[in-house]
Simulated scan of single mutants.
Amino acid sequence: MELRQLQYFLKVAQKEHVTKAAEELHVAQSAVSRQIHLLEQELGIDLFMQKGRNLHLTPVGQLFCKRVESILKDLDRSVAEIHEFLNPERGEIRIGFPNSVGTHLIPTIVAEFRRHYPHVKFRFKQGMYPSLIKDVLSGEVDLAFISPCPDSDEQLIGDVVMTEELFAILPQNHPLAQEKIIRLEQLKDEQFVLFSPGYSLRPIVWQACLKAGFTPQIAFEGGETDTIRGLVAAGMGVSLLPEMALFPTNSLQPAQVRVEAPAVTRTIGLIHRSDGRLPLVARSFRAFLLTYFRTRQNNTPVGS
């Protein structure tokens, strides 16, 4: 069994077509077909079945495909680790994060890190809480910012890097917009603009409202902080957003007011797999981040 056969097999499985796979691999169609045939002969099984013009994996082919994906991913990471060992300042860091930290936090810390390591590359992946956990466990990303930081997990190591206050955001003409601080129960009769189910900020806001004695009435659900902030500014309702999501991105901005009874906060954690397979360059970045947040914990807000 040759590495080339596994690479060809995986590409055909992804494209479900020999010609399309060959085009992407920049080889002749006959070469791809021959290597797949030799692989099936060696294994003594059919990996694909014809359906119309496409090829679909057989049940045993699907099982084999999962293993091949894992093998080739590990091989790619091994090659990358060798290059990083030879020159750890020129590696690539793969990092995941939720939408709410992408506007300001990620650019700030990446810019700061690259001042010291200008040749390090970054690959970013944005996602919701469950997908970020999955991406870390599958090795799709090396590190991920996540909120809230998950409880203890044998497969993950997580460090709480910061605790952030959530502010009420209101239309500029709202009767409470000029207040310095309000009780959350004062918003019980308002329409709320919230993150959709699956976003980690939604249950934080929902539970805070329940603790204040009411169930929020939902006017709109979305997945982008800019959208939520813009709709509130346009008078469509009120919401709660973390401080780092309140940096202005256009001229239409809501008022922001501190909340008490209860005060609403969220934790932001940095997670990675617990199996010790973090690449050298990612280890350097993690160490940098832990120091970065620790030194700023009692000083200025992130990015200020």
Rank of each mutant, 00 (worst) to 15 (best):
Q253I: 10
Q35T: 09
Q126H: 01
P254R: 02
E221Y: 03
L86F: 12
F113I: 09
L289C: 09
F214Y: 14
Q29S: 14
H174V: 09
A261R: 12
V68A: 07
F293N: 04
K20E: 13
N298Y: 14
S70D: 11
V136Y: 02
L187K: 04
R229S: 10
L184D: 02
K20Y: 07
F48P: 08
K73M: 11
H272E: 15
L63K: 03
E190W: 04
L278P: 03
A177F: 10
S239V: 00
F113N: 05
A261Q: 13
Q172H: 12
H174K: 07
N299P: 03
E69S: 05
N298P: 01
E40P: 03
V18I: 15
L201F: 03
E84D: 14
D226H: 04
P301D: 10
H272I: 11
R202C: 04
L86S: 14
E2H: 07
E164F: 07
S33V: 00
P150D: 08
G61Q: 01
H56Q: 09
M162T: 13
L201E: 04
F9R: 02
Q191H: 05
R202N: 08
P118F: 13
D76K: 05
F285E: 02
L166V: 04
P262M: 12
Y292A: 02
A261E: 13
V136W: 02
V120D: 00
L270C: 05
I133F: 08
F113G: 02
R286E: 12
G198W: 08
P203M: 08
V160I: 15
V257W: 00
H272G: 11
Q256D: 07
E140Y: 09
S33G: 12
G61N: 01
V141A: 12
S196Q: 07
G158A: 15
P197V: 07
Q35R: 13
V281T: 15
F285V: 06
L194P: 02
L132C: 12
E23L: 11
K15T: 08
